[in-house]
């Protein structure tokens, strides 16, 4: 996964004169390759659109979040209420948009946090091996065995009043294990590389080698995993919120909206369809980007594409 191996000279366009051929950097070639993949473009466009309407949509709507229309309970979509109203007269469009905001924020924060934990734990375990490795991997295995849903659900009543930021930390604490195992495996092979050995013989302390040489050289794996973790975080958040262990009223997320609408999905479909549809679209778009990123970053998978 060395940087130089992937730099390829750009083919000289004919008739362009003797201008020196510019070597595109790794990231610009990755970017170009991604933009050529249809599914990535679709994913990025979808996410940008969703983020824009999630934050701009509530401003355009005549209704405020949490405002109740006592003249309209469970009304189907109309010019007045674009996506209809729910059983307490709230505008479905506005609450879905606010829920979408929360789900996007939670997804991103959890993914970044858990990938960071995974990188540090995996790199330390793989670099030092021995006792450090045993202890860290044992904790990882243990967390994989304990159903995370159970721990989150048990701990939740204790932390209920702390707001959704604590919820984010808890989610992140249970999503890093699989990535950490992969990071560990890669670290074991990376630490034999010349640049790591050189740094070590020059007397660079171990933690500096890990943060300066090992983790940056796994950036592609980490970026792909962070993307995948966004979608798993959103999915876990939805499931927990559905059972009332997640985001609590007055806050809403797509999960709590789906759980409100599920009971009346057949009789009043608009309370269920919009939040579910947006959720599926959001996760699908994130997954498509992750898949495209993997193809662009992983030289092995280029063969397949």
């Amino acid at each position: 996964m060395s940087m130089s191996a992937e730099r390829t000279a750009a083919p000289d366009a004919p008739g362009e004169g003797p201008a020196p051929a510019r070597t595109p950097g790794r990231w610009s070639s990755v970017l170009r390759q991604m933009l050529q993949t249809r599914r990535v473009v679709f994913g990025v466009v979808t996410i940008v659109l969703m983020v824009v309407i999630a934050w701009v949509g509530p401003l355009l709507s005549p209704w405020e979040f949490g405002e109740r229309d006592y003249a309209a309970f469970l009304q189907p979509p109309s010019p007045d209420h674009w996506w209809g109203t729910d059983n307490t007269g709230r505008d479905v469009f506005v609450s879905t948009m606010v829920g979408l905001q929360k789900s996007v924020i939670i997804g991103l924060l959890v993914a970044v946090l858990s990938t960071m934990v995974a990188a540090v734990v995996g790199a330390f375990a793989g670099y030092f091996l021995g006792v450090t490795d045993r202890v860290l991997m044992w904790i990882t295995d243990l967390l994989l065995v304990l159903p995370s849903f159970l721990i989150l659900a048990i701990l939740y009543p204790v932390l209920r009043d702390q707001g959704w930021v604590v919820f984010v930390a808890l989610l992140a604490a249970f999503l890093w294990m699989v990535t950490a195992k992969m990071v560990r495996g890669m670290t074991i092979s990376l630490k034999e590389r010349e640049y790591v050995l050189a740094a070590r013989y020059m007397g660079v302390p171990a933690w500096k080698i890990i943060f300066r040489h090992i983790i940056p050289n796994m950036s592609s794996l980490l970026i792909v995993d962070a993307t995948i973790n966004v979608s798993s975080a959103i999915i876990v958040e939805t499931s927990l919120s559905y059972f009332g262990f997640g985001v609590q009223p007055p806050d809403v997320s797509l999960g709590s909206l789906i759980s409100d609408g599920a009971g009346q999905a057949v009789t009043h479909p608009w309370t269920f369809v919009f939040s579910t549809g947006l959720l599926v679209l959001l996760v699908l778009a994130v997954n498509l980007i992750g898949d495209g990123l993997r193809d662009a970053l992983d030289p092995q998978s280029k063969r397949r594409a």
Binding site: S239, I258, V266, T276, V280, V283, L284
Partner: peptide
């Protein structure tokens, strides 16, 4: 890809809704 984007809860509920329908 579509199924991967749907949480297990939503798969279960959606199947239920389809069954009712």
């Amino acid at each position: 890809f579509t199924v991967l984007a749907v949480p297990a809860v939503v798969v279960a509920i959606t199947l239920q809704v389809i069954a009712i329908w």
